[in-house]
Computed example of a mutant assay.
Amino acid sequence: MRLMIFGAGFSGRTIGKHIQGNFQFIGGTTRQDKNFSQLRDDGISPFQFTGEAFSDVLSQELKDVTHIIQSISPDKGGDPLLPLISHKLLTLMPNLKWIGYLSTVGVYGNHDGEWVNEETVCKPVSKRSIARLDAENAWTSLCNANDLPLAILRLSGIYGPGRNTFVNFEKGKARRLVKEGQVFNRIFVDDIARAAKLLMTQNISGIFNITDDEPAPPQDVVAYAAELLGVGPPPEIDFQTADLTPMARSFYGENKRVSNQKIKDLGFEFLQPNYRSALAYLHGRYHT
């Protein structure tokens, strides 16, 4: 089996590291060649892809890939990969057996704190989530037309080594924003990789929420991190009066609890089922 990860960033690189030994070849694209050394360190063969065209060397490699992960966010023109492959998918990748698309739980929109699952009607609010749902639908149509299994992984807020609340404390940017009733789901990056590994190695199709067990108020996460660090938590800040960028404020316009039961029904077990176990793990590994 041979895998190409389009958009080998934080999640894509972690997927590549977790499937070492399961694939004969793992490639990953990046916009800038300065990222090549990092990809090689993670066991991923690097290819430059800016979203405009495939290089000759990338096109040659795609002829042999059996699996792809699409992790590149939509831009103003939509999904950058689809226009290049939509009318010639199996000509470009004749050995393709499975496609995975990394999406977001943002496609569900706001549900006023109620539980949602993969059967819930999507009503995205933000432009970025609308674009994600459009991309999901386009990938679904493409895979149906080519009789290929497609797994859509809807991810909640991603964190892990180098991207977590402890980093915010180190940078002096930790804040406890409080909006009554607001909760978020989160997902540890290694669990994204493990879920992707399960789905791709078994060529499983469908939509799956890849998210933790416990949607929680964001201020509780910051307070727990402070407790682990042995410092006082930052003061609470009222969301309504907080100085936030429009994008940061828009995240708080969506309030829901996301179920992960469907991926568990496949036998999947989360390494970090909630923010407490994940932060304790990160603290023990990187802060002791």
Rank of each mutant, 00 (worst) to 15 (best):
I210E: 00
A242R: 10
P233W: 11
P235N: 05
N209Q: 10
P246Q: 10
A226K: 01
V221M: 13
P215A: 10
E214T: 13
A226M: 00
I210D: 01
P215V: 13
A225E: 09
A225L: 08
A216M: 09
Q219H: 14
P217Q: 06
F251N: 01
V258F: 01
K264F: 04
V222Y: 04
I237L: 10
I210K: 02
V231R: 13
P217K: 10
Y224L: 11
S259K: 14
A242T: 12
F239D: 12
M247K: 11
E227G: 08
P215F: 02
V221H: 11
L229G: 07
Q240P: 03
P246V: 02
V222F: 04
V221P: 07
F208M: 08
K256E: 08
V222L: 14
E254R: 08
M247Y: 09
P246M: 08
E254D: 14
I210L: 02
F208N: 04
A216H: 14
T211Y: 02
A223H: 07
K256T: 06
Q240C: 12
Q240S: 15
P235D: 12
G267I: 00
N255D: 13
I263H: 05
E227I: 11
G230Y: 07
P234T: 10
A216I: 15
Q261T: 07
P215L: 09
S250R: 08
L229F: 01
G230T: 09
L229W: 04
D220N: 13
A248F: 09
T245S: 15
Q219G: 13
D265N: 10
A216R: 12
G253Y: 12
V231P: 02
L244D: 02
N255Q: 14
P234G: 05
P218F: 08
F239R: 11
Y252R: 13
G232Y: 15
T241S: 14
T245C: 04
G267E: 00
N209L: 01
A225P: 01
E227M: 15
L229A: 04
L244A: 03
L229N: 05
F208A: 06
A226S: 07
P233S: 15
G230N: 09
Q240A: 15
D265M: 03
K256S: 03
P233T: 12
I210T: 05
N209D: 01
F208T: 02
P235K: 10
E214N: 09
E214P: 02
A223I: 06
T241V: 08
Y252C: 08
A226L: 03
P218M: 10
T241G: 05
K264A: 04
L229R: 09
E236W: 00
K262P: 11
P217F: 06
V258M: 01
G230V: 11
K262A: 05
E236Q: 04
G253Q: 12
D265E: 14
Q219Y: 12
T211A: 07
K256P: 03
I210P: 01
R249V: 13
A248V: 07
P233L: 10
L266T: 02
R257W: 09
A216K: 15
D220I: 00
Q240Y: 15
A242M: 14
P233I: 07
D238T: 03
I210A: 03
A242F: 10
